[in-house]
Design a protein around this nucleic acid. Sequence first.
RNA 1: GGAGAGGUGACGGAGCGGUUGAACGUGCCGGUCUCGAAAACCGGAAUACGCGCAAGCGUAUCGUGGGUUCGAAUCCCACCCUCUCCGCCA
Length: 428
Amino acid sequence: MLDSQALRSDIESVARRLAARSFSLDVAGFRAIEEERKAVQVHTQELQAVRNQFAKRIGQAKSKGEDVAELMAESGRANAELAELEKRLEGIQQRLQDFMLGVPNVPHESVPPGNSPADNREIRKSGTPRALGFAARDHVHIGERLRLLDFGSATKIAGARFVLMKGLLARLHRAIAQFMLDVHTQEHGYTEVYVPYLVNAESMRGTGQLPKFEADLFAVPRGEEGKFYLIPTAEVPVTNIVRDEIVPLESLPLKFVCHSPCFRSEAGSYGKDTRGMIRQHQFDKVELVQIVHPQDSYQQLEQLTSHAEEILKRLELPYRVVALCTGDIGFSAAKTYDIEVWLPGQSAYREISSCSNFEAFQARRMQARFRGEKGKPELVHTLNGSGLAVGRTLVAIMENYQRADCGIDIPLVLQPYMGNLKAIEPPP
RNA sequence: GGAGAGGUGACGGAGCGGUUGAACGUGCCGGUCUCGAAAACCGGAAUACGCGCAAGCGUAUCGUGGGUUCGAAUCCCACCCUCUCCGCCA
């Protein structure tokens, strides 16, 4: 959510910056509601003051034993109008709130302008795709040849966009997550957290998934009309740790890492990435979350991104870092770096991590604050990034470390997590 | 799921339906005293929003939402959460 003060004082420049991400801010609409709000609120508060004065006088008169019938009658009359106004004000404020919740974040000035992924800017590249000496197969071919990747069973059990892994491949998947957690907790200073995978609507609103993107979520009914939502990323429960909190200045930055499953309905992605386990309803991810002092957030974004990159470096997977353009950044983000890993099976770089600074956008929704240098509560800045998506990392390893016989060499750093196994061999 | 107790400011803890944004204590900040500190004493301190150039004034907030009332932290209803006991359970 944006600062409503900023919208009031300089809506034109906000609208201009939002236009860069092809969001057209309803300036006239906002002004109209805002004008109405002002008039109604001022009048309401005046009448409330009158009511309070009457109540006070009645109390005083009563304590002196005076007759208050006249005062009470007068007060009652004044209150009739008040009740109506209060109701109207509530409606206006609700509309204003709904409006604000639907406005995306303003891109940071360093975000490259553009309308489509084609305008994203490559920032740096690391590693070079190794020469295989044979035609690269994709992970589906390799996994099925190894009989360790079973899409048929997953489809039978659940449906499309699910996968079932077996044996050493399931173990490799687990090893990848363990490795990531160890690096981030032991070397990058993150505190590991285990969190609920089902969350309430307030949490989803806090990080920006609701109210706009309900269709992307899985919901579980609960009680009369309540519901839980399955987390689409650990970002949601982890960031909401600080919702409605005032954290002490000295505890910043808070750095959390969380391995969790992620559930996405992938509504609107029909036909995209239908082959393999690139786009699934359920996948594992190791997520990095930082809660920081506003003045540090862009520096921390660079740091957080480098933490994610470090995993790819140690796995010796070629990748590049891309700054998303204004038209491609997510709803809540002010700036985003995508990290894309090289997939020989597709001869392409594919997203494996997305690292974003949300500035105060999520913090304002969550009322996540710290007590500033002057002793006043101020909004924190929030950041997060995948460090990394586990399933896609597995895909990248399968494709980059494939051998001619469809065996997979195990990256050196993962061997200790695999009982020192050096490779997964194909069955005869 | 059943029975009971409870949710008040940073914390502990008061609070007859009426000058209560909320006693008292602890903690915090400033000051006096002191060579300095402690103690003691004095003073100051909530959050959000609105109007205003400002000083300031106003409104809201005692788990949440409704209701009763001229007036609700105080009364009524619903819900949420916490704790204790019972049942069930990985």
